[in-house]
């Protein structure tokens, strides 16, 4: 911190500094300088420097003037260093206070609350009409990253997608992969962005999440039939997890209404591999990779903000792009 560099505030520094050029040539000029010190614009000083010379006065008188200027300077310096020193202490205090606050999911609450404010601002600005650019397929990437929830005791042939929170259905609905593949097939190429900072271009194929919603309508707040024309009537959140519940994400429903949010079964023109989340994974370009959950086992519409694996580790819950 800069404030560390500041000398102790009480010492009058002008005296320590032999080069401090406060010596004045003439009493008239000295008087002008004093005026300037008391708030007159600096121009007054420079003008006097070129003014015609006045008869040399008594050196004692000059010294009196100079001493007055030095005293005022010392006073100003002392006051301002004390002021800025106090401000630096307040700054340190505020920082210490911030860092010692009770933590919510590994983040001091004032910072966590700010992340939530950022989220609200971003959600206000968010529009399903703004889509991710579609880069050309010439530089398709393939990077395996993260195996949470992808335990080896998994039989893809027995996999079923459990969906809860559907309209007129109390028990979760179990769907096979064919149910997803029956939906209109959508292909897209997008830049997949990892929260770590890297990104790769990936080609995907799967079903649009809104088509999935149309086919298996979720329950609504009002009890009316599901309609994409009334997104505000949907339950506000969706929770997804791997079959073993080892990895789970929470999403606000509007990002699932985005036209590029897909339930994918193909990647780079090949069937999804196990390490990329076969048989079915979520691809949601409006979020960092962490929300693009692999091997989706359950989908649940909910009123309660769902737990999120990485948000519990100190990350932002929203991570919207």
């Amino acid at each position: 911190m800069s404030e560390d560099n500041k000398p102790t505030s009480g010492v009058p520094p002008a005296e320590d500094d032999p080069t401090s050029p406060t010596a004045l040539g003439a009493p008239v000029q000295g008087a002008k300088a004093l005026e300037a010190a008391s708030g007159k614009p600096a121009a007054a000083v420079t003008e006097t420097a070129t003014a015609p010379p006045v008869t040399l006065p008594d050196p004692k008188e000059i010294e009196t003037w100079n001493e007055q200027v030095r005293r005022r300077m010392r006073q100003k310096t002392r006051r301002s260093f004390l002021g800025f020193g106090a401000a630096a202490l307040v700054g340190f205090g505020a920082f210490e206070w911030l860092m010692s606050r009770r933590e919510i999911d590994d983040v001091p609450w004032p910072i966590r609350k700010t992340l939530e404010v950022n989220e609200q601002l971003a959600r206000d600005f968010f529009s399903t009409g703004r889509t991710a650019p579609r880069p050309s397929e010439t530089r398709l990437g393939n990077r395996i990253n993260g195996d949470l929830g992808l335990g080896s005791d998994f039989d893809p042939s027995k996999w079923q997608l459990q969906v809860s929170g559907l309209a007129a259905q109390d028990e979760p609905l179990a769907l096979g992969i064919d149910a997803i593949k029956k939906l209109p097939r959508v292909e897209m190429t997008t830049e997949f962005k990892c929260i770590e900072g890297w990104s790769i271009i990936v080609q995907w194929a799967g079903a649009r999440f809104t088509d999935f919603m149309q086919a298996y309508p979720p329950t609504t707040q009002s009890g009316d039939d599901f309609s994409l024309d009334h997104p505000e009537d949907l339950l506000p959140y969706v929770a997804m997890s791997t079959p073993d519940d080892a990895y789970y994400v929470g999403l606000e429903v509007e990002s699932l209404l985005h036209p590029q949010t897909l339930l994918c079964y193909e990647q780079n023109h090949q069937p999804l591999t196990l390490e990329h989340g076969a048989p079915l994974r979520l691809v949601i370009p409006v979020k960092y990779g962490v929300k693009n959950i692999k091997r989706v086992g359950t989908i649940r519409y909910t009123n309660v903000r769902p737990a999120d694996y990485w948000a519990e580790q100190g990350y932002d819950w929203y991570v919207g792009l």
Binding site: P13, T22, A37, V69, K76, T77, S80
Partner: peptide, 16 residues
């Protein structure tokens, strides 16, 4: 010092 001080106190000393 004169210059640094001016960024804190706002004033510098000037030789006419």
């Amino acid at each position: 010092w004169n210059n640094f001080r001016s960024m804190v106190s706002g004033y510098e000393s000037v030789s006419l």
